[in-house]
Amino acid sequence: MNFQENEPLFSSKVFLYLSRILVLFTFSIIFKSFDHTFVNDLRVMDLRGWMFSLFYVAFGLLVWEGAVWLTRMIEARIGGVAASRRLAVLCCVLVLYGIVAAFGFGFLYAVSDIVLFHRYEAWQSFKALSYDLNFGIFMFYLLILTFNGIIYYYSAWKEYQVQAERLMRENIQARYDALRNQIDPHFFFNSLSVLTNLVYKSPDLSADYITQLAKTYRYILDKKFENLVTVQTELDFLESYLFLMHIRHQQSIQFEVEVEEKIRSKGMIPPVSLQLLIENAIKHNRFSANDPLIISVKNEDGCLVVSNPVRRKTGAELSSGIGLENIQKRYALISDRGIEIQQSDEMFIVKIPIITVT
């Protein structure tokens, strides 16, 4: 039988409860061997034996549901805690719950045996905490703890599989989006247009322009499958990109960098993150030689802060947010820290975390 093809059957509530009843009934038969009255009378499956199994299964289902509910409640309360600590808390709570449930069963079993069949052996064993009854109680406790642990870890495993598959798809999509947005055909054709004009005006500058353009695209192609690069590597790439922007826009764009040397060499960020932010700033703001757009990059509190004044272009379309979403997705794949966006009528600021790899 193929498990994946029949997974809806195995995941259904009917199958779940039937399997629980079967397991509990099997354990009820085993548990009877610890009550010598069943063995001595050789009546394991008489009316008293059937009533015992029925009581065992009913009580077990209630305790089982209680353990599931308790697990979910703990997960909801401490879901943000580290996995190891969450597991330790869950195990401790289930141990206590299992002990209470086991002794509760021993007490109810003894009382019901007196009321229904006028048998006092179970009560005497329960009061004396005999070895036989304690071992039987331990079996019941082990049943609850083990099976709830299996269910919990199976659910966690399935959730992990789904999450891993989702992240893998998002990783591929993010890389595709990054490549699509970074190698912008309009930017490429504009660069060729600028180069056409430069060829006639300044052959030397044209050669420099071609060199920097080649560096820009070589970086994009070389780093497209890497999750992280050093800040210095990104700034070196940005230098080539800004050279192209300065040739095209002259002194209309000014770029300020204040990043400490230690951050440059040790800090890591996703490749082309800064270029996407600067490209957005150039795309959505007005600038001129008399009123240049000043884009600033500095490090602050473990982040690279990219800021620019807001000068919305008249009649320009609203930003689709693809560039920012792209960066956010890539950070979600490699870190638990996300980017922070601060926007006002005067300034647009994006903070991207600096990742330190030990």
Rank of each mutant, 00 (worst) to 15 (best):
N2A: 04
V14F: 08
F15G: 02
L22H: 09
L24T: 09
F27Y: 13
S28M: 02
L42Y: 13
D46I: 05
L54H: 08
A58T: 15
E65T: 09
V68A: 07
M73P: 00
M73D: 04
R77T: 06
V81Q: 10
C91W: 12
C91A: 14
V93M: 10
Y97Q: 03
I99N: 04
V100R: 04
A101V: 08
G104Q: 03
G106W: 03
V111F: 11
I114F: 07
H118I: 04
Y120G: 03
E121S: 15
Q124G: 13
S125R: 08
S130T: 15
D132Q: 13
M139I: 15
M139D: 12
I144W: 00
Y153T: 10
K158Y: 15
R169M: 13
E170T: 11
N171A: 13
N171W: 05
A174C: 00
R175Y: 07
N181R: 03
I183S: 07
P185K: 11
H186N: 08
F187I: 07
N190D: 09
L192C: 08
L192Q: 02
N197L: 08
S202W: 00
D204I: 14
T211I: 15
L213T: 09
T216H: 07
Y217N: 07
Y217P: 00
R218L: 10
R218G: 14
F225E: 14
F225I: 13
N227P: 03
T230D: 05
Q232A: 12
T233Y: 00
E234I: 00
E234N: 01
L235E: 02
D236F: 12
L244E: 01
L244H: 03
M245F: 08
H246P: 07
I247T: 15
H249Q: 08
Q254C: 10
E258G: 01
S265E: 14
N280Y: 03
A281W: 03
I282L: 13
I282T: 04
N285E: 11
N285M: 09
R286H: 04
G302V: 08
R312G: 08
K313R: 15
Y331H: 06
A332N: 11
I334V: 07
D336H: 12
G338V: 02
I339Q: 00
E340T: 13
I341N: 04
S344G: 11
D345L: 10
E346W: 04
E346S: 11
K351A: 11
P353S: 01
T356M: 07
